[in-house]
Amino acid sequence: MGRLRNFTIAAIAGLGMALPAAAQDMKFFRIGTGSAGGTYFPIGGIIANAISNPPGSRPCEEGGNCGVPGLVAIAQSTNASAHNVNAVQAGQMEAGLTGAATLHFAYNGTDVFEGNAKPDLRVIANLFPEDLHLVLPKGAKLDSLADLEGKRVGIAQAGSGTQIAIELILATQGITRDNIEEAELNNTQSAERLADGQLDAYFYAAGTPVAAMIQLDNTKGMELYDWSEEELTAGNEAVPYYIKSMIPAGTYPGVDYDVDTLAVSGILVTNANQDEELIYEITKALWSDTARKLMDNGHPKAKVITLDTALDGVEGIGVPLHPGAERFYKEAGMLD
């Protein structure tokens, strides 16, 4: 699966207290996210903080974090969706963030996962919509997606969920690797190359606002491609889990117009073999009052991660809930 790198350990303040006596009770829980310039990485860090309660920390009832006692969650930077579902299936990570489309394809062994199904994937929660950005240099304009022909285009990381969707969607407009000069890069690399004039455009799906795009907007400036109704319909038909969405004017200060686009839900997944009680406690911690405060004060996209929408669209993806998560949602009155 390649080496996991650039990991950050979340929620271990106070770990030094009483560590020797409690070390045997400590459990690590790795969460695959995405690149540091995207949205999965900061969201994963917030989730890691929310569900952690390292040995020696103050208990929830005494004003401490309301995570799972003894748990140290780690948000790891990865190549995002496809990488994460592979790693979770293989047991190389305990959980991961992935787009709904990638999750559907991986679980069922279809499309790019043909003959390589990931049957042990299980859902913990629906998180937030990820808008597909088609980023252009400041002042640049496309009349249609077909205008990408012959251009240098960033199509996200190799094997990422964004790349899977982009290739399917672009094919509906006659654009393939054969008629563009594609670049397989993460969001930060893509933004840097666009700023340096080495790319004419790049795609990335992430919750808004995206850190690397904020920086690009503030420095070199940028434009976002506004999709036509025909392109949105064709894209949705090609990848049903990408649905019509809009990035409102002012989301990025330099982009003062509404942008019609497609979006896919970001999902938190785990492995079916993870202990039911542990996943139940993690799901409970994810929706605690403490977690709510962390989300409201963290990344802007974390504010839309709510218990009310935790099951939105999950049934349609066709991937089961983990029994521990299912037990929590039943107790919360959200499932029969």
Rank of each mutant, 00 (worst) to 15 (best):
L4R: 03
N6F: 00
A10S: 15
A13D: 11
A13T: 13
L15K: 12
G16K: 11
G16M: 11
M17L: 15
M17T: 13
R30I: 00
I31A: 01
G38P: 06
P42H: 06
I47A: 02
S52Q: 07
G56M: 07
C60A: 14
E61V: 09
G63P: 12
V68W: 04
P69V: 10
L71P: 00
A75S: 08
T78S: 01
T78M: 00
S81P: 03
S81W: 05
A82S: 05
A82N: 02
H83K: 06
N86Y: 07
A90Y: 04
E94I: 00
E94S: 02
T98N: 06
G99T: 05
L103T: 07
L103S: 06
Y107D: 04
N108V: 02
G109Q: 11
V112I: 13
A117R: 13
L121K: 07
R122H: 10
I124A: 07
A125F: 11
N126A: 13
L127D: 07
L134V: 08
L134D: 04
V135S: 02
L136A: 04
P137F: 03
D143F: 07
S144R: 12
S144G: 12
L145S: 04
L148D: 05
V153R: 07
A158F: 15
S160V: 11
S160E: 05
I164K: 12
L170K: 06
I175K: 06
I175M: 09
I175A: 02
E181G: 05
E181S: 09
A183R: 12
E184P: 10
E184Q: 15
L185G: 03
N186W: 00
N186H: 01
R193P: 02
D196A: 15
D196N: 09
G197S: 02
A205E: 02
A206C: 07
A206G: 10
G207P: 05
T208P: 12
P209F: 09
V210I: 14
A211V: 14
I214H: 05
Q215W: 08
T219Q: 09
M222L: 08
E223N: 02
W227K: 08
E229R: 06
E231A: 12
E231M: 10
G235S: 11
G235R: 09
N236T: 15
P240N: 09
Y241H: 14
Y242F: 13
Y242T: 08
I243A: 14
I243P: 06
P248N: 09
P248G: 04
A249P: 04
G250C: 08
Y252D: 07
V255W: 01
V255M: 04
D256K: 03
Y257D: 06
T261Q: 07
V264H: 13
S265E: 09
I267K: 06
N271H: 10
A272P: 03
E276D: 15
E277N: 11
L278H: 04
D289E: 12
A291C: 12
L294P: 10
D296V: 14
G298P: 02
G298E: 12
P300R: 14
V304E: 10
I305K: 04
D312S: 15
D312I: 10
V314L: 13
E315A: 12
V319R: 08
L321F: 05
P323E: 11
P323R: 04
G324R: 08
A325F: 13
K330C: 10
G333I: 13
M334T: 11
D336K: 15
D336Y: 10
D336N: 13
